[in-house]
């Protein structure tokens, strides 16, 4: 049973593209046939993050306009079995396609793939409407900041109004030490406002920047904490029961030693 999943956020720069790339790669690594669709026409990025930019010949708009066949526009990622990219057009605008055309395209892709992941553009205008038109399921990304959460809330409202009843949430770039100091919204604070199911939490991780710049998804790096988090999210999408990770990476040797002896260094701030 194949599924079209749209990854959206409202606010820009919270990690939609990175998340799409990583979840898609993780799903492919688990043996699924996956296509990543970049719906951000005019501001495409997914090809860059995947390191496939130089292989684009045809794009999504070409397919919709009948310039080429779907198969010609799909780029196979040679590093991962079963992973494909359908790039966006860079020289066109969001209005180049309609929600009806996107719906039809999604139906076509569903016949060939287990998972169709759509990287939604920021905003709630035409590009957003196009991206959600053919989706069966929605994932909302936010970072633990008031403005991003506000936008996520707006998007959840629009998703439910458009028949995507139960969107799931990914909290990206969580800094556990800042949460502990009370300087950042916690997972609970965020869930309290948004009130939807939590699909996963991705810790703030420098290795993401490196892997994004290199065009290598972090899930392929077993050392990356964020990569692990994305792997877990992919497994949850597949229906597996994976508990949330513990993010206590910032603890040095001394604090681990203290914890070993039962002298917690965190207990004070935890209960502050």
């Amino acid at each position: 049973m194949s599924e079209v999943i749209v990854i959206t956020s409202g606010k820009g720069g919270v990690g939609k593209t990175t998340t799409t790339a990583n979840i898609g790669t993780a799903l492919a690594l688990q043996g699924n046939k996956v296509v990543l669709m970049d719906a951000d026409i005019g501001l495409r990025n997914l090809d860059v993050v995947m390191g496939l930019e130089n292989r684009i010949v045809y794009d999504l708009v070409d397919v919709v306009e009948g310039v080429c066949r779907l198969k010609q526009a799909l780029i196979k990622d040679k590093r991962y079995d079963g992973l494909y990219l359908l790039p966006a057009a860079q020289t066109r605008e969001k209005t180049a396609v309609t929600p009806e055309q996107m719906k039809k395209l999604c139906e076509e892709l569903k016949e060939q793939f287990d998972y169709v992941l759509i990287d939604c553009p920021a905003g709630i205008e035409q590009g957003f409407k196009n991206a959600i038109a053919g989706a069966d399921r929605a994932i909302v990304i936010t970072v633990p900041e008031v403005s991003a959460v506000r936008d996520a809330d707006r998007v959840i409202g629009l998703l439910t109004a458009n028949g995507l009843e139960e969107p799931q949430l990914i909290i990206n770039r969580l800094k556990m030490d800042m949460v502990r100091r009370g300087d950042m919204m916690s997972i609970d604070d965020t869930l309290d406002i948004l009130g939807i199911g939590l699909l996963g939490v991705v810790p703030d991780d420098e290795s993401i920047v490196i892997s994004t710049n290199r065009g290598e998804p972090a899930v392929s790096n077993s050392q990356s904490l964020a990569g692990q988090a994305y792997n877990n999210i992919a497994r949850r999408i597949l229906g597996q029961d994976v508990p949330l990770m513990e993010f206590n990476v910032d603890q040095g040797f001394l604090s681990r030693l203290k914890r070993f002896f039962g002298i917690s260094t965190r207990s004070v701030s935890d209960h502050a």
Binding site: D153, R154, L158
Partner: peptide, 8 residues
């Protein structure tokens, strides 16, 4: 019968 979200 539901939460009223931003923009609604």
């Amino acid at each position: 019968y539901n939460t009223i979200r931003s923009g609604q």
